[in-house]
Design a protein around this nucleic acid. Structure first.
Length: 194
DNA sequence: TTTCCGATTGGCT
DNA sequence: GCCAATCGGAAAC
């Protein structure tokens, strides 16, 4: 997809330490092109998940069928089902064989708002993409995207050059293990942060 | 094969 | 604020 003023982020961006990539993903755009409809918006909240020392990470138990993609090439997509009903979207980071991923927790809705409202069955902008499973529904991301590579025709991350004034970090949401790690990054004061 | 439980959300009290 | 929904991953048996 071609969007004026936006550049595609290439996979070398993700081939870096997970915490660095996580912080740098703030202000980038997550965009999908589904059924000819382009949807997406500015990333305002993310969480980093690393290897065996991070007990909240799916990779903390060593390689399994599910988390194998976290050990694979940077720029691949890790989608998993949570609570039997929702999907969460991650981008794989680090060099091959080093586990890591960044969970996209919230974006600021901007492109394809009409379609996102339909998919979410909500009219309120605040309810479209202000949570990890809300944004997958709004962007029509599901388990069929798991293990795929970010691609220009399907799902991609783009940059418009903007950089936020205030990025905060803190403990991750909804986890019980490794609470002490400040692996959550977000735009301070942004109303779409979950 | 069985059991436990989760990187969430939305509806109801 | 509380809790059900609903599936599959991972480990125990």
């Amino acid at each position: 997809m071609e969007i004026a003023g936006f550049n595609i982020i290439k996979s070398c961006f993700f081939k870096r330490p997970t915490l660095i990539v996580a912080r740098d993903l703030i202000d980038k755009y997550l965009i999908t092109n589904r059924e000819e409809i382009i949807c997406g918006g500015r990333i305002v909240e993310v969480e980093a998940y690393t290897g065996i020392d991070d007990k909240a990470s799916h990779a903390s138990v060593g390689i399994t069928k599910r988390n194998k993609i976290m050990y694979d090439c940077p720029g691949y997509i890790y989608v998993y089902m949570i609570y039997g009903i929702h999907y969460c979207f991650n981008v794989v980071t680090e060099k091959k064989n080093i586990p890591g991923a960044v969970l996209i927790r919230a974006i600021e809705p901007e492109l394809g708002i009409k379609a996102m409202k339909t998919r979410r069955k909500r009219n309120n902008l605040l309810e479209l993409t202000s949570g990890p499973a809300k944004l997958t529904q709004a962007l029509s991301i599901d388990i069929s995207d798991n293990n795929e590579k970010l691609s220009e025709k399907d799902i991609c991350i783009m940059d418009d050059g903007r950089k936020s004034r205030k990025i905060s970090c803190g403990s991750r949401i909804g986890i019980t293990k490794s609470r002490h790690l400040n692996y959550r990054f977000y735009v301070k004061g942004n109303k779409y942060v979950s």
